[in-house]
Write a protein that binds this DNA or RNA. Structure first.
Length: 780
RNA sequence: GGGCGCAUAGCUCAGCUGGUUCAGAGCAUCUGCCUUACAAGCAGAGGGUCCGCGGUUCGAACCCGUGUGCGCCCA
């Protein structure tokens, strides 16, 4: 907004409030639309008919209703607070309008004589000697033994010879400067707080334009920086200046005028937080409201337990104007309009005001946002006290998704407002996302130029790729590091799914053709696998582990469905069994449904290509599948089969044998392998059970089963021996460590029986493996 | 200065109340493949002092203490 004005060559200071607001609305129309457009392009599934804006008349009214209500309840009051004052622009600045720079300045060590002594003094260190005339006390840490004897005595401010007390307060740091702090309540917020604790007077010695006023007694009318030099000089001349030191300090400069910002006490509006925070804290601690991830609970608590009253007034134009009015004698009336305020005044003070002027300030932006869960449905509820049907239906909502940085500003305050006005939480779950950073971990910022334009990314990679790319790297509550590689991964995933569909839809189907062994096994297995994955998925969603949920689907689709399932059912040549084809389509349909929340565009498109849908039917509204019971033993058999296939492939590639050359696989005893699939995917002509290991065979072991392949003279017996010896050594070492455990009486005595049993099983397993390896070795 | 949190593979992170061969995933890397869905791909492989030190325990990535390095909030 400020940038837009600058581009138009307009200085904010030349505008009236009304003119400024009309520009602000213009900006809002333009950029508010862009944000919504980006969300739509990303495929955000929102109720677009319900977009609302806190500056709409109805919501504006709601904010004022709440201010007036809380004022009448006595929860809103006026109090003193430091604001950033720009003496050149003669205006208060918001924190955003202050630039902090590190500046080389001087630390002055000034001696304050002790009252009633000759030549005794305390020394304080300050960067602002021009404010000594406003000092209200000298403060030391009560634990500082150097000064304990001085507490309760008086010191004399040099040049004006005024006595001030020496007090003790824990705030003072023992190692900064001399350990003595001059307390100047009007010119420093910490000093102000010390002053409040010790009932010290507040002496403001500056005029609006930064010159000294008559309370300074000396150098009246001089600019603060001129006065600083002159006072330092006079202190030195009169022997009060012990020394000066170079000192780096952080100083605020006005963004508008570049003047050094003066901290200044001013009257501001506050909301008392003592009572209103209570239900908002209790109900997070007792999990009525759950934070995800829960590590934020601690932070939330420490903040809520130490919360200070909320300063709700802001020295800005854009925002909800404070509905407070003042008569010339300073009495306050509240009202949304001058007429209402007039009435209020009459009622409260029993007379008519001479005139009323509205407070110039606006309310903190969170003072409207905290009403959002209610005001968006029923802006009148704060005045009426009776929720309408919509609010009753939607409140409280399930989940709030937001950034952890506004957990305090927004989330906590929505909870406060909710309990205050409806006596009910606004939401059950709060999912805290991370901030997007670049891959170097820096925040995205315009000045660094490291923030990508989402619309350009969407154009280049597709919205689904951008969504999944971001989600791959977003564990709850952690920052997500933006890296284009992740978006590429998302795109590749989308591409993979598209190609799976091409394969599926390209088959020539023969409805009469029965399934072969591999196809039948694959169909049976994938049914179980799918449900197992869905169970995991449901758990991940329930725990708000969104990146994990995506990864479960990524692996289910890419590895299980594409790499294993489709390869297992793929006909070598010729036609596809109708039965298998139908089942595969049903599986694909389920996968599309499951993936839809992550990749809405691609899945919607394929879902319609997969079969003719009814008019108006949409995957976005189709039911989401839920897990059914499955046979985990079957899933494990397949895992065993996978390992078998991989081992065969690996042995082949180790000896440089082409995957096209078929082999015979032998195994001893029993094998849980799905023989059809293993035969097909490992390219085996036969799989045979044998009593004794075949001659000159290479072997591998999966679980309890020993497998053999005759790879002929491609295998170097020496290498094979070495491999077996290595394996043997490992197993023997392992056996030894297990035996050591089991021989340890203290282990057997104190570990749970289950754990001991497991160790025994491990021992037996290792023993049988060693036996098998030795048999192998003997053969060689 | 006060408070909260983090440190595990080259990178981003899982690892539930301490106990299976527990050290894992994805990406990246390396090797071999243009195998009629996909080279934006396929098939394999390697890779870690679980930040250092000390303690508790039969047993520690996990619990306690301490040091170091980072991040955030408040001042």
């Amino acid at each position: 907004m400020v940038t837009m004005l600058k581009e138009k060559g307009i200085e904010k200071s030349t505008l009236s409030r009304e003119e400024f607001l009309s520009y602000a609305w213009e900006w809002k129309e333009k950029y508010g639309g862009i944000i919504l457009d980006q969300l739509k392009k990303l495929g955000a599934s929102c109720d677009w008919d319900r977009t609302r804006f806190t500056m709409e008349p109805e919501l504006y009214d709601a904010v004022q209703d709440v201010f007036i209500d809380l004022f009448e309840k006595g929860k809103i009051y006026r109090g003193i607070r430091m604001v950033n004052w720009d003496p050149q622009g003669q205006t208060a600045l918001s924190d955003d309008e202050v630039n902090h720079k590190e500046v080389q300045s001087k630390l002055y060590y000034i001696q304050y004589p002790l009252e009633g002594t000759e030549g005794e003094f305390v020394t304080i260190a300050t960067v602002r000697p021009e404010t000594i005339m406003a000092d209200a006390a000298i403060c030391v840490n009560p634990a500082d033994e150097r000064y304990t004897h001085l507490i309760g005595k008086n010191a004399i401010i040099p040049l004006i010879n005024k006595a001030i007390p020496i007090i003790a307060d824990e705030y003072v740091s023992l190692d900064f400067g001399t350990g003595c702090l001059k307390v100047t309540p009007a010119h420093d917020i910490n000093d102000y707080e010390i002053g409040m604790r010790h009932n010290l007077p507040v002496i403001d010695l500056l005029n609006d334009n930064g010159t000294l006023n008559e309370k300074a007694q000396i150098y009246v009318g001089e600019d603060r920086f001129v006065a600083r030099k002159k006072i330092a000089k006079e202190l030195e001349a009169k022997g009060y200046l012990q020394k000066t030191e170079d000192y780096k300090s952080n100083i605020g400069f006005s963004e508008r005028t570049d003047a050094v910002v003066e901290p200044r006490l001013s009257l501001q509006w506050f909301l008392s937080m003592r009572d209103i925070t209570k239900p908002a804290l209790v109900n997070v601690l007792n999990d009525q409201i759950q934070l995800h991830p829960p590590k934020f609970k601690n932070m939330y608590r420490s903040w809520m337990e130490n919360v200070k009253d909320w300063c709700i007034s802001r020295q800005l134009w854009w925002g909800h104007r404070i509905p407070a009015w003042y008569c010339p004698e300073g009495k306050v009336a509240v009202g949304k309009t001058e007429d209402q305020a007039f009435e209020y005044y009459q009622k409260k003070y029993g007379k008519e005001p001479v005139s009323l002027t509205q407070d110039e300030d606006v309310l903190d932006t969170w003072f409207s946002s905290w009403l959002w869960p209610m005001s968006v449905f029923d802006p009148k509820v704060f005045a009426s006290g009776k929720p309408n049907e919509e609010l009753k239906y939607y409140y409280p909502t399930n989940d709030l998704v937001t950034a952890p940085e506004i957990l305090y500003f927004w989330v906590a305050r929505m909870a406060m407002a909710g309990y205050e006005y409806l006596d009910e939480k606004p939401f059950t779950n709060v999912y805290l996302t991370g901030i997007v950073r670049d891959k170097l971990g820096r925040k995205m910022s315009k000045s660094l130029g490291n923030s990508p334009d989402p619309l350009i990314l969407i154009k280049e990679f597709g919205a689904d790729a951008v969504r999944t790319g971001m989600l791959f790297s977003s564990p709850a509550g952690n920052d997500l590091l933006y890296d284009e590689k992740l978006i590429e991964q998302g795109r590749n995933f989308a591409n993979k799914i598209w190609n799976a569909f091409r394969l599926l839809s390209g088959w020539e189907v023969n409805m009469a053709l029965p399934a072969d062994a591999s196809q039948q096994e694959a169909v049976d297995w994938f049914g179980h696998r799918l449900n197992a994955a869905m169970e995991e998925l449901e758990k991940a969603f329930a725990d708000f582990r969104i990146a994990d949920a995506l990864m479960i689907l990524y692996k289910l689709i890419w590895d299980d469905y594409c790499s294993w399932y489709l390869e297992a059912i793929k006909p070598f040549e010729g036609k596809m069994s109708g039965e298998i084809y139908e089942k595969s389509r049903v599986y694909f349909d389920s996968l599309l449904r499951l993936l839809h929340p992550f990749m809405p565009f691609l899945t919607e498109e394929l879902w319609h290509l997969l079969e003719e849908r009814k008019k108006g039917e949409s995957l976005a509204q189709a039911s989401y599948p839920s897990a059914l019971a499955f046979n985990s033993e079957f899933v494990e058999r397949f895992e065993h089969s996978k390992l078998t296939v991989t081992s065969v492939r690996n042995l082949r590639s180790q000896v440089g044998m082409s995957p096209k050359e078929s082999l015979v696989l032998y195994f001893s005893g029993k094998s849980p392998c799905l023989l059809g699939i293993v035969g097909k995917l490992a390219n085996l002509s036969e799989i045979l059970s044998v009593e004794v290991a075949p001659e000159s065979a290479s072997s591998f072991r999966i679980g309890q089963t020993e497998y053999y392949l005759q790879l002929g003279d491609r295998v170097n017996p020496e290498e094979e021996k070495e491999k077996l010896n290595k394996e043997l050594a490992y197993q023997q070492g392992f056996l030894k460590s297990v035996q050591a455990k089991l021989n340890n009486e203290r282990f057997v005595g104190s570990a749970p029986a289950q754990v001991v049993e497991r160790e025994k099983a491990k021992m037996a397993d290792a023993e049988s493996k060693i036996e098998a390896i030795q048999l192998q070795l003997n053969k060689l």
